[in-house]
Simulated scan of single mutants.
Amino acid sequence: MADETETGAAPRGQRPRRPRDAGGVAAAVALTVATGAMDAISFLALGGVFTSVMTANLSLLGMSTASPDPARARDSAVAMAGYTAGTLLSGWIVRGPRPARRARCALTVELLALGGLWAVWAAAGGHPAGGRQLGLLAVAAFAMGGQSGLVRAVGPPGFSTTYLTGTLTGLLVDVARSGTVRRLSALLVVSLVVGAAAGGLLVARAARAAPALPAGLVALVLLGSLTSLARDARGRLWPHPP
């Protein structure tokens, strides 16, 4: 089974193609791991809903009306409201000139949200309940919505670090049609699973520190974005598709 081509020899007289930007790939992987961890934390400890997969929350909302399950409906609605607010704010931040600087601002907002979540979470001993639980769910969804809006706005078409159904579908279709594997797509899918596993383990064994994982990863991406290693030849922060 062949891998996708990421480098190649250029015809004589032309500049050779650059390999995929390692810094951009690392940032995408880190953000995807953070997404998986945050989804695991929200599902296991913040009401049994997701903070980045709004399709699933819409399904949960529909099922809650058929059950009926008022608590599930409420939690799904809170998550969707937080996600919507984060996406709108991030999209507003990154519009206009100097996209790299604006992307860093959007990452900063996400980091502040996750940092505040961690502080309140730790104050609750890693087991928030009642209104505090709902508030943290909204903040977590706000952070993931912000990340989704940011990547959608400044990344290549179809690229995501939060909702990966399309990524998985494209990966499988490429395998079926041509026997090729898009390594970045496969890496992001695996990263989501790894992040979810790590988030779940933290909730089970070190609950107070669980949100430190997504917050720390976003902080690393923000710090990395300040260096030239995080940008490609055109100054973009994200890897572009093959």
Results as ranks from 00 to 15, higher is better:
W92I: 03
T165L: 04
L220S: 12
A71G: 03
T35H: 02
D174R: 13
L46D: 09
S64M: 12
L192E: 03
L201C: 05
V175Y: 12
T227F: 10
G125K: 13
A22C: 00
L89R: 10
V203F: 01
A122V: 05
A85I: 14
E110T: 09
G199M: 06
G135V: 04
L61C: 02
G146H: 10
R72F: 05
G62I: 11
Y163W: 02
M80V: 11
P128C: 04
A204M: 09
A73Y: 06
A204V: 06
R74F: 10
A212Y: 01
A219I: 05
S42K: 03
R231F: 03
V109R: 00
V203N: 08
R152L: 06
R182K: 08
L134K: 11
T108L: 15
S191I: 02
R177D: 14
T51E: 05
T84S: 13
L172Y: 07
L171K: 08
A40I: 01
G115N: 06
L202A: 10
S42T: 15
P19N: 03
W121E: 00
R234F: 06
A22K: 00
R15K: 08
A85R: 04
G158R: 01
P156S: 11
G216A: 04
R18P: 02
W238Y: 05
G135M: 08
M54K: 02
D232M: 02
R177P: 00
V221I: 07
D174Y: 02
A100D: 10
V25M: 04
R18G: 02
R234E: 15
G131C: 06
A176T: 12
D21F: 00
V120D: 02
A138R: 11
T162W: 01
G36M: 02
S178E: 15
A40F: 03
S42I: 04
A123F: 01
A2G: 02
S185V: 00
V189L: 09
T165K: 07
R95I: 01
R152D: 14
T162I: 13
L137K: 09
A71T: 11
F43Y: 15
R132F: 00
T169Q: 13
A176Q: 09
I93P: 06
